[in-house]
Amino acid sequence: MIVPRHYKEMPQRYRLQGNRCKACGKVFLPPRLVCPCGSEDLEDYSLSWKGKILSYTIIRTPPTQFKYQKPYAVAIVELEGGGTVQCQVTDTSLEEVEIGKEVEIVFRKIFSEGEAGIHCYGYKCRVV
């Protein structure tokens, strides 16, 4: 049962709600209590829904929960205004996925828990 764990991460998965270090400016998703720079002075920050691909792969042997989605691309996306996320690239042909490509974040169903569990929604990206 994934419900309590997923529920806790909803602000991050639904709205990219992270935080930013007031000392060094680094942006985090999920939010951190302590910045690697040592500062504990962080402020709420919602990450941008636009960014570009830093690296990616195409998953051809997925875990069970994703087996009917294969093949799919997963990318590290650097967001405008700071912060990086890792997410699937959707609505895009695999040949189009490249390092440096501009993407927009979209709200999608990541997976459903089994036949009868909840639908887990969150962020993915797609080539603009």
């Binding site: 792969t57 195409i58 998953i59 996320v85 887990c120 993915k124």
Partner: peptide, 20 residues
């Protein structure tokens, strides 16, 4: 919650290192 949740795997993580 922030890698595996999105369907990435260990070959996938090292593949991203390889691409980069």
């Amino acid at each position: 919650e922030y890698e595996a949740f999105h369907g990435n795997t260990f070959p996938g993580l090292y593949a991203m290192i390889a691409k980069a």
